[in-house]
Simulated assay, not measured.
Amino acid sequence: MESKTTPLLDNQLCFALYSTGLAMNKVYRKLLRKLDLTYPQYLVMLVLWERDGVTVSDIGARLFLDSATLTPLLKRLETAGLVARARSNLDERQVVVSLTDAGRAMARDAAAIQEQVLCAAACPPDDLAALKRQLEQLRGKLAADS
């Protein structure tokens, strides 16, 4: 017999977020295969396409990742010839990440990905924008409590 206090998987917000994240990553994995990027690498590239020449700590803050997670990602992107890392002239402790010509050129190939994800979601753009805002608010509240 089921107790009213027994937690049910289908009632868990965390599982809805987790399983949706898995489904979203599956869509991105298929689309990013053409670019030979993983999803976390794609996120780093998005940051750099938006603003080139930023520090590792700036990238980490933007993506909510620590340097221990970012360093291997950046090394793989550097090995692939998409980014270059160099010590800052202003502060040797800082590492600045910049796009290479190949990394900048990849932005053109990646431009269609967002539209393809919207098509895969098969939701009205206004609904997706509202959902995104709600998730950002939730993330902010959860981060404030931790």
Rank of each mutant, 00 (worst) to 15 (best):
R85Q: 07
L46S: 14
L128F: 07
W49H: 07
Y39N: 09
D58K: 15
A23D: 07
R108C: 03
V117S: 12
L37W: 00
N25L: 10
D127P: 01
L135G: 04
R51S: 14
Y28F: 13
D101N: 08
F64Q: 07
A23G: 06
E92C: 06
R133F: 04
A107G: 02
D91R: 09
L48R: 10
A129N: 09
G140H: 03
R33E: 08
T20E: 15
T69M: 02
V117C: 06
R104I: 04
I113T: 10
T55I: 01
A102E: 07
K30S: 03
D145G: 07
V54S: 07
L63H: 05
V83K: 02
E2C: 01
R93K: 14
G21D: 10
L37I: 05
D36P: 00
L35D: 05
Q12G: 06
L73N: 05
Y18E: 10
L77M: 04
M1R: 13
Q116H: 08
D127V: 14
D126L: 09
T5Q: 11
L9Q: 10
G60K: 03
T5W: 06
R87Y: 05
E50F: 14
T38H: 02
L142A: 11
S98P: 02
L63P: 01
L13H: 09
N11P: 00
Q41A: 10
A80V: 03
R76M: 01
S3W: 09
R76G: 00
D58L: 13
R33I: 00
A120G: 07
L17P: 12
R108T: 11
E78N: 00
A129V: 05
L73Y: 08
L8F: 10
S3T: 11
Q116E: 15
M24P: 01
L70W: 01
P7A: 05
L22K: 14
V56C: 08
V117Q: 07
D52I: 09
A110K: 10
V83I: 13
R104V: 06
A61G: 12
N89G: 12
E2N: 07
L8Q: 14
Q12S: 15
L99E: 00
Q94F: 07
Q134S: 14
M45W: 02
V47C: 15
A107S: 13
T100V: 03
R29K: 14
L8H: 14
I59H: 04
M45D: 04
V97C: 06
L82F: 05
Q94G: 00
L35K: 04
C119I: 12
Y18M: 15
Q12W: 01
R139Y: 15
G60E: 05
L74F: 01
L74S: 00
L118D: 12
E50R: 15
D36V: 08
G60M: 07
T71K: 09
Y18V: 10
M1A: 11
A105W: 04
S146N: 15
A111E: 11
L74N: 00
Y28N: 03
K75P: 00
D145C: 06
L8T: 09
D126T: 12
I59Y: 04
G21E: 13
L35N: 03
L74E: 01
V44T: 03
L35M: 06
K75H: 03
D10V: 11
L63F: 02
V95G: 00
T38K: 04
G140T: 06
G53L: 14
T69V: 08
T55W: 02
